[in-house]
């Protein structure tokens, strides 16, 4: 029985913080045991019984307490750490309320469409351009990397399928979703857009001191939208004919297929250039945004930015305090459900 001896010595060295509670419980249990033992109780061996109860309680309950305490410590630490971060953020925002407040600019439907759109377009560009520029050395490299022309064509058609899906989804969104409907009307080009463009250039040149004031969609964003609209119509229409040439040739002559191929190839280049140069500058490479905005991911725009970039929209919607949620990079699910 060396074990109990060790156990006896340990509490002596380092008394447990709950030693008193253990002693109380042991005493209570001893009293109960004495009653339960009835006839078997022997006053001569009273100190033995008391000792046994105390050892059992210390062994069983003590181990249990140790485990529970360690777990509670871990949990508490994690919870308090989280709370501390939140509290720090809250106090920081309370100090500068403008910085932290944000609005939903792109809802979850819009973000999903954008995500699927750029996924498909990246696939289409990577697999399509080597076919257009087949004479360039890098084209052969890319095609080989993808595992040959057959894989390239399968991937191109996979990308095309996603793009068609996005286009159909967007039509449904525009027709049936209230936000989609209202955005569509706001995206229609107006005379103001031409004026805005002119005024913006004058501002760039330093002739005027004020930037034109944009509504929800500036003329640049409208251009992006309609460029994609036009691109989708051309690319999907011509692409389907090129995908099923034998079927198409049952109805249309060969030179029409060649025309469609030319249009597909030329519009592909136009779209790629517009994306890589224009869109990438606007959302990645311009000094205000570099290396890029995460608006496409969380869909939120800060109050400061909407005031600067879309003042007419801001004034129109004058946000209710409840719509302003803290944390521009931390969208909560309720915010999306609007």
């Amino acid at each position: 029985m060396t074990e109990p001896a060790e156990r006896d010595s340990q509490p002596g060295k380092e008394p447990k913080p709950y030693q008193e509670a253990l002693d109380l419980i042991a005493e209570e249990l001893y009293q109960q045991l004495r009653r339960d033992l009835d006839d078997a109780y022997d006053p001569d061996l009273d100190d033995y019984i008391r000792e046994q109860v105390k050892k059992r309680v210390e062994r069983d309950l003590g181990t249990e307490m140790d485990l529970r305490l360690a777990r509670a410590r871990r949990r508490l630490r994690a919870e308090v750490e989280r709370g501390l971060n939140k509290e720090r953020k809250r106090r920081k925002m309370a100090a500068a309320p403008e910085r932290g407040r944000s609005l939903v600019r792109l809802n979850r439907h819009f973000r999903a469409q954008h995500l699927a759109l750029f996924t498909s377009v990246i696939i289409l560009i990577i697999t399509g351009l080597p076919m257009k520029f087949s004479r360039l050395g890098i084209s052969g490299f890319v095609v080989n990397l993808l595992g040959g022309i057959e894989n390239d064509r399968i991937l191109h058609r996979t990308g095309a399928t996603i793009l068609i899906g996005v286009a159909l989804y967007h039509l449904g969104y525009t027709l049936f979703h209230p936000q989609g409907r209202s955005d569509f009307f706001l995206l229609l080009p107006r005379l103001k857009d031409a004026w805005d463009a002119l005024l913006n250039v004058l501002y760039f040149l330093g002739i005027t001191r004020e930037r034109p004031r944009f509504d929800r969609f500036s003329y640049m964003e409208k251009f992006d939208y309609w460029a994609v609209y036009w691109g989708c119509v051309i690319m999907i229409g011509s692409g389907l004919i090129l995908w099923f040439p034998d079927t198409a040739l049952q109805w249309i002559p060969k030179f029409a297929v060649d025309t469609v191929k030319e249009a597909h190839s030329d519009e592909a280049l136009l779209a790629t250039l517009a994306l890589v140069i224009w869109h990438f500058y606007n959302v990645h490479f311009n000094p205000d945004r570099f290396p890029g905005t995460l608006l496409w991911w969380h869909g939120r725009i800060s109050e400061k930015e909407i005031k600067e970039e879309h003042p007419l929209e801001y004034e129109r919607i004058i946000p209710e305090p409840s719509e302003l949620l803290p944390g521009s990079a931390d969208p909560s699910p309720q915010a999306d459900a609007e």
Partner: peptide, 27 residues
């Protein structure tokens, strides 16, 4: 069709790149 697209692409890209450069200069 090819000619039309060439003109369209050149015109669009000239306008967009011009816009970018002016914007960048101002910024």
């Amino acid at each position: 069709v090819k000619l039309a697209f060439t003109v369209l692409t050149a015109g669009t890209m000239a306008a967009l790149i011009g816009h970018i450069l002016l914007d960048l200069r101002k910024k």
